[in-house]
Design a binder for these strands. Structure first.
Lengths: 350, 350
DNA sequence: ATCGGCTATGCAAACGTTTACATTCCGCCG
DNA sequence: CGGCGGAATGTAAACGTTTGCATAGCCGAT
């Protein structure tokens, strides 16, 4: 730790400036001296002091990721995507997750300030006011799955609406006419978008659909609870579409326990395509979200921002979702039914 | 970003030294001036420049976590535990995962040098030579689940041996006399320890056990493949103990597909207690590893190390594992059968 | 009333880099 | 042969903190 650039300079009989230039590959160093310097640096196991460097360059080569306390598999996939992209660009990754309340998230955001060149914010609760209050407006940021419609930041939201719309359409096309939708928690952005997709698909159908809305909260328990009620119900829907996979799985368990067969008695679909989905019995039909891609893409948007310090032309994007049909809604084999475009500007409000 | 300690000092009509003292809560500042300074700092939204600070304090308030590219749920749980503990201590968390080959891991380790006050290394492949080569010996480190027996670093290994021993014993006590063990990949530390536990339990039993070793590699596929072979086999074992849950689940799927009933025809057990385990059908009996606790505990060991800069007396610990009995091996309800001590020095070789 | 000691505050050095600017060296052209 | 230009190298300032030391008050005791 004690070996500094001065030690290298002394040992190589040059000035510190030359060492800096040689090691940073900058111009105006003879090949012979550069080689000598690099040799000494390696021999001494010299590692530049990053704090000193970023003090003067005003760059930390680090990006921050602010995440809520969220479902395990989603989280790990996202981090993996981000990390992969970060490494590819030589960036470090500072993570901060598990924020119960907004003030904790604010503190974490504040603490990151100055340690990072940019920040990735993912929170289904964050709004524009929160951001403008706690996020320096000079700090590049990319917002993932947030309701905040800020023109200042790039936002990257998965196509919750489109995915739910497509899945509902698929269920209707498969012949199901009475469909229940299990919602996510109230006030959650992803949840409300998925509900909207369901409702619109029902409304747009040429058939008369018997649609029911059942309130859930994204937890496996809430799905299980609803499943139990369905078992006891006399007028069961023919299909159930849960706003996420965890609830679908909870529901599936309750149905199986209650002797209701899936998909024979009730077809079942979820949302997210978490790894568990393909391992339950029967495997779960669901909407696939390319989570790792989302993370990678978010990081790249961010990196691009501080590479060129250019304001991005396109500041809102919606990675698409695919429908993955598995046995839980009647088909025998896995297959991808519908693939929306890979990425496109949001045009659905127009 | 532009607001520095000098701005605060000027605005509050004091010297920078006083601002520093006031903000760091150090001694010898009148309450009245301290309050004035803090007021100004807040008004100006002053955030200390962390690079400048750590340049002089030689502390970064950051710990690094070096992780292999590992199974999603394990990873996220571990990170969660680490993050929780880090936040509690006001430390930041720099993560680096997904290292295919050792040289990548080495590069990541090197790059972390100087950005962190200490590092958590988790890799089932890392050995002492690797560490001494790429890890500055002045940098505090905690090794998680590594085979390296270094007296220099604290190591924290889950009790793979004890867990496998206990589970095997449980299977034997449940009356199963022919048991197959599906191994993990060759050369993996966790895998070999679990195998050792199985073997020792079989050897120690008073009954004559018909034990079979089947080679797997921790992947769901390898478990599935073995399951298929079991389906076709004429002489099936009465119970199968897989070295991790993913293989157990793959095996379970193959058995179910082949019409072999679990647990009626074959009892099945896994290792890790990943969240999926309780959602498969039937729910999987397994060895529970408190992953988040492992992470939390590792971070605390590390933090303790650079709080006091004292060499720890106890440098090897083994968090215990519980056995979780679920329907896949015949019992009807979830229950925790055996709980080893919470944490203890490794004494099993004596 | 004077002095001693203690507390609040200020001054300035130091941390390890990068980089603008100065200097040196060398070869080439006039 | 002398100066000149460009490349290689050196010098030192700057980045924003913390902190040891100096200094200036202030209060109480003799």
């Amino acid at each position: 730790m004690a070996v500094t650039i001065k030690d290298v300079a002394r040992e190589a009989r040059v000035s510190v400036a030359s060492v800096s230039r040689a090691l940073n590959g900058s111009a105006n160093v003879t090949e012979i001296t550069r080689r000598r310097i690099i040799g000494v640096a390696e021999r001494l196991r010299y590692v530049p002091h990053s704090a000193a460097r970023s003090l003067i360059t005003r760059r930390t080569q680090t990006v921050g990721a602010l995440l809520p306390d969220l479902f395990g598999e989603f989280f790990s996939e996202l981090i993996r995507g981000i990390d992969l992209a970060a490494r590819a660009r030589g960036l470090h990754l500072l993570v901060s997750s598990s924020h119960g309340n907004p003030s904790e998230a604010a503190a974490a955001l504040r603490a990151m300030q100055g340690r990072v060149d940019g920040v990735l914010v993912m929170s289904p609760h964050v709004d524009a006011a929160f951001l403008s209050q706690h996020l320096s407006d000079t700090l590049p940021a990319v917002l993932i799955n947030t309701p905040a419609q800020s023109s200042q930041y790039i936002t990257l939201n998965i196509d919750n609406y489109g995915g739910a719309l497509a899945m509902t359409k698929h269920l209707i096309d498969s012949g199901f006419r009475s469909i229940a939708f299990i919602t996510g928690p109230h006030g959650n952005f992803d949840a409300s978008e998925r509900l909207r997709g369901f409702n619109d698909a029902v409304a747009a159908s040429e058939h008369r659909i018997d649609a029911t809305i059942l309130p859930g909260d994204f937890s496996e328990e809430s799905g299980h609870c609803i499943g139990q009620r369905l078992v006891e119900s006399t007028a069961r829907p023919r299909a159930v579409f849960a706003a996420n996979d965890m609830m679908a799985i909870g529901c599936l368990l309750a149905l199986t326990e209650g002797g209701v067969r899936v998909p024979n008695d009730i077809a079942l679909a979820g949302f997210d395509d978490i790894p568990i989905a393909r391992f339950v019995n029967p495997p779960l039909t669901t909407v696939r979200v390319r989570i790792a891609d989302l993370g990678r893409s978010a990081l790249e948007q961010l990196a691009q921002q501080f590479d060129a310090s250019n304001v991005p032309a396109l500041n809102e994007q919606e990675p698409s979702c695919d429908i993955v049909v598995r046995a839980s809604c009647g088909n025998r084999f896995d297959s991808t039914v519908s693939s929306l475009e890979a990425s496109r500007p949001s045009a659905r409000h127009t």
